[in-house]
């Protein structure tokens, strides 16, 4: 696959919502290309007829019962706990900079 340039680095950084300086972009260009170049060797492996792994240990999905607040650890009614670490709690809400839709 083609090497990634600094524009691509900036595009990925914005997709990942990480602000980066030009210096960081330059540094990352080298590092990412080094790592991606190295993982490309996977392309050598013949995977015809091989299914991608779905469950590392054979196991199927368990389903929960439709019961409200059966376990406080996975139930609601704990607004104080939910907001306890909020940077900008606003009478029961999380405050964020105004969003224009």
């Amino acid at each position: 696959m083609m090497a990634i340039d600094q524009a691509t680095v900036r595009k990925i950084a914005s997709l990942a919502r990480i602000a980066i300086s030009d210096a960081e972009a330059a540094a990352m260009e080298g590092e990412l290309n080094g790592i991606l170049g190295w993982v490309e060797q996977l392309g050598e492996v013949d995977v015809t007829g091989v299914e991608p792994m779905t469950a590392v240990i054979p196991n199927t999905l368990r389903l929960r019962d439709d019961v409200v607040d059966a376990d406080p650890l996975t139930g609601g009614n704990r607004r104080d706990d939910i907001l306890a670490n909020a940077p900008a709690p606003q009478h029961g809400f999380f405050g964020v900079p105004k969003v224009i839709e």
Binding site: R64, V68, D71, T74, G75, G76, N77, R78, I82, G92
Partner: peptide
């Protein structure tokens, strides 16, 4: 139509007080 949410045990009823029907799971702690 369900009592609890898709992946947590928090209630789904309409019109509750803000953030009262939110589990640790729904808040992505």
């Amino acid at each position: 139509t369900s009592n609890a949410k898709l992946f947590s045990g928090a209630a789904t009823a309409f019109g509750a007080e803000p953030n009262t029907q939110v589990s640790l799971v729904d808040a992505a702690m």
